[in-house]
Amino acid sequence: MRAVWLREFGGPEVLAPGPAPDPVPGPGQVLIEVAHANLTFVETMFRASGFGPFARSLPLIPGNGVGGTVTGVGHGVDPELVGRRVVSGTGGAGGYAERVVVDRDAPVPVPDGLPLDEAVALLADGRTALMLVRAAGLRAGERVLVEAAAGGVGSLLTQLVAAAGARVVAAAGGPRKVALLRERGVGVVVDYREPNWTDRVRAATGGVDVVFDGVGGSLARAAFDLLGTGGRMLSYGLASGAWAELPADLAAARGVALLRPGASPAELRALTEQALAEGAAGRLRPLIGQRFPLERAAQAHADMESRATIGKTLLDVR
């Protein structure tokens, strides 16, 4: 089968297309014919340095999220699963390929009416956005700053915040992303690459009650200063390469709660199912900004690292 290999850590160019043995499902496993592979920023960090939650030795086929059709099952698995459209995590590797084998409990069925590419776009980002909104305990009328609001998670958060009756304040990098958010109906949008962007937020809103921080670093530190007593800051990513340096004693003195939400595997599955259901109902629409054929995974990584992408980036495998 066709696949993309990672044989050494380094720049995007180390991702090399090449053949791989066809996987065969063993007892308790299913075989998925992959249509789309989900790309996340943490995968670019793993490719560069080995950073990430999944310890793996090289060489390997990277990729931790796929969508496709079950085409085979191993011993002890219900054969009725064959033909079912699913999304699935891979356990940390194997996703940049035409086929992948996973445990039978890993795939999540895709509801009728939801395109498979949108389901893959909601696999990781949808459950993350739902988890964050749940943890924030949003109240109607609150002012909510979404960092990287034109990204995969950020674009979903803007929808969920608005649906909760709160006021969306979007921060994005560059005129193209700012224009996109305004076209999508976001009222307050600022370019965080411009100096004094927090002054514009404060002038428009007076400050914010909640910050969804997927960037970290200096951007998150500046966003923190917009929060007042009773504010909540939820950090879930470090696209800048580092978490924000926010001393707990400073947050306590300001009356701000610093939150880093998490979920058990069972909760993550339930959140994934909820995201897919919301997508099928048309209430949660992922922004698929760019797509690449499998063989151009290196270019996809390069574009993500350069911040040239918007929304979700997919590899179209089939």
Rank of each mutant, 00 (worst) to 15 (best):
residue 109 P to D: 14
residue 170 A to K: 07
residue 146 V to R: 03
residue 110 V to T: 06
residue 108 V to K: 07
residue 251 A to K: 12
residue 168 V to I: 11
residue 178 V to F: 10
residue 178 V to M: 12
residue 126 G to L: 07
residue 243 W to P: 08
residue 310 I to V: 15
residue 33 E to D: 14
residue 172 A to V: 12
residue 264 S to D: 13
residue 206 G to R: 00
residue 129 A to H: 07
residue 39 L to T: 06
residue 14 V to Y: 06
residue 158 T to R: 08
residue 67 G to M: 13
residue 279 G to A: 14
residue 43 E to W: 00
residue 78 D to G: 05
residue 312 K to R: 13
residue 208 V to R: 10
residue 94 G to W: 01
residue 98 E to W: 00
residue 26 G to F: 10
residue 312 K to M: 05
residue 129 A to K: 09
residue 317 V to R: 03
residue 120 V to L: 05
residue 247 P to M: 07
residue 93 A to G: 01
residue 60 L to K: 01
residue 261 P to W: 11
residue 232 R to P: 00
residue 176 R to N: 06
residue 278 E to I: 02
residue 259 L to P: 01
residue 233 M to E: 09
residue 194 E to I: 00
residue 44 T to S: 12
residue 164 A to E: 15
residue 249 D to A: 13
residue 269 R to E: 13
residue 212 F to K: 06
residue 198 T to P: 04
residue 299 Q to T: 14
residue 125 D to V: 10
residue 282 G to F: 10
residue 235 S to Q: 08
residue 124 A to Y: 05
residue 53 P to K: 09
residue 101 V to R: 07
residue 293 P to Y: 11
residue 1 M to P: 12
residue 167 R to P: 01
residue 91 G to L: 09
residue 175 P to L: 10
residue 123 L to R: 04
residue 92 G to S: 06
residue 40 T to S: 14
residue 171 A to W: 03
residue 111 P to M: 07
residue 125 D to F: 04
residue 135 A to F: 03
residue 183 E to V: 01
residue 224 F to S: 02
residue 3 A to E: 00
residue 7 R to S: 15
residue 273 E to I: 10
residue 95 G to Y: 02
residue 22 D to Y: 07
residue 268 L to C: 06
residue 45 M to H: 00
residue 254 R to H: 12
residue 2 R to S: 13
residue 34 V to M: 08
residue 268 L to H: 11
residue 13 E to W: 03
residue 181 L to E: 11
